[in-house]
Design a protein around this nucleic acid. Structure first.
Length: 225
DNA sequence: CTCCAGGGGGCCA
DNA sequence: TGGCCCCATGGA
């Protein structure tokens, strides 16, 4: 089976197995700012720990990017302590908040200009930039994270778990999954990424594959099993 | 105790 | 580019 067809099949199987995932989870009024802040906090960190930090920020009334700007860095670091790397992440949040404060016209920019501007910020890499663009700004692009790389590798779609994010994004763009949809591509891409995370968290662990109950077991070529 | 989590930067060959 | 190391908490 060609990869571009396999990708469509993966989405269909995951959606029928798990249903809509309702991503990105939010609880603040200012959803966009909460998503951007969460995208930084969740770097190599469990969402459970991020939620504690978001709750701390909200209780301290640091509930927007502009409040991040006006909060002293040491206080910020204390509020996000549960997310780990709190000194680095406090610095990153300050930089991101300053960027959006100084760049009021950001939402009107073309996508590639938005992406490269975010990537130029210290502390914002590809996954963080793409998550912000897909979930906060609802731009149609595919987020590649460690889960995506692992799942695609075990499915035999890529030949390495270290496949370049650009190569994986190209596969998605060329797949029927993406090409055959005319409207609301961003919603589909949000759902796909969330479903891949759901699959990986449930059945596709790093050193412990649980292939028997996996909804993709019939098309998986798990090199670890 | 060990391993891992919705990464990214810095440095060096 | 590719391989390390650093950052750091909290749950399983």
């Amino acid at each position: 089976m060609a990869n571009k067809d396999k990708i469509t099949l993966v989405f269909q199987k995951l959606f029928s197995a798990f249903g809509p995932q309702k991503w990105w989870p939010t609880s603040w009024q200012n959803k966009k700012d909460e998503i951007i802040i969460g995208a930084v906090l969740t770097q190599n960190t469990s969402w459970q720990n991020v939620e504690k930090s978001l709750k701390n920020l909200y209780r301290a009334s640091v509930n927007s990017l502009s409040k991040i700007r006006s909060t002293p860095k040491p206080k910020l670091a204390r509020l996000i302590k549960t997310s780990g790397y709190y000194n680095q992440k406090a610095k990153k949040l300050k930089i991101v908040a300053d960027f959006f404060y100084k760049t009021k016209s950001f939402s009107k920019w073309p996508l590639l200009k938005q992406r490269s501007a975010l990537l130029s910020l210290w502390g914002v890499g590809e996954e963080t930039a793409d998550s912000i663009l897909l979930y906060a700004f609802e731009k149609p692009l595919f987020v590649v994270d460690a889960y995506t790389k692992r799942v695609f590798y075990r499915l035999g779609i890529t030949n390495s778990e270290k496949a370049a994010p650009r190569d994986i994004q190209q596969l998605i763009l060329c797949s029927g999954f993406f090409k055959n949809v005319k409207t609301k591509r961003e919603k589909l891409l949000q759902e796909f990424h969330a479903l891949l995370v759901k699959l990986a968290k449930t059945y596709c662990f790093k050193n412990n594959p649980l292939c028997q109950k996996c909804p993709l077991k019939t098309i998986c070529q798990n090199p670890k099993s």
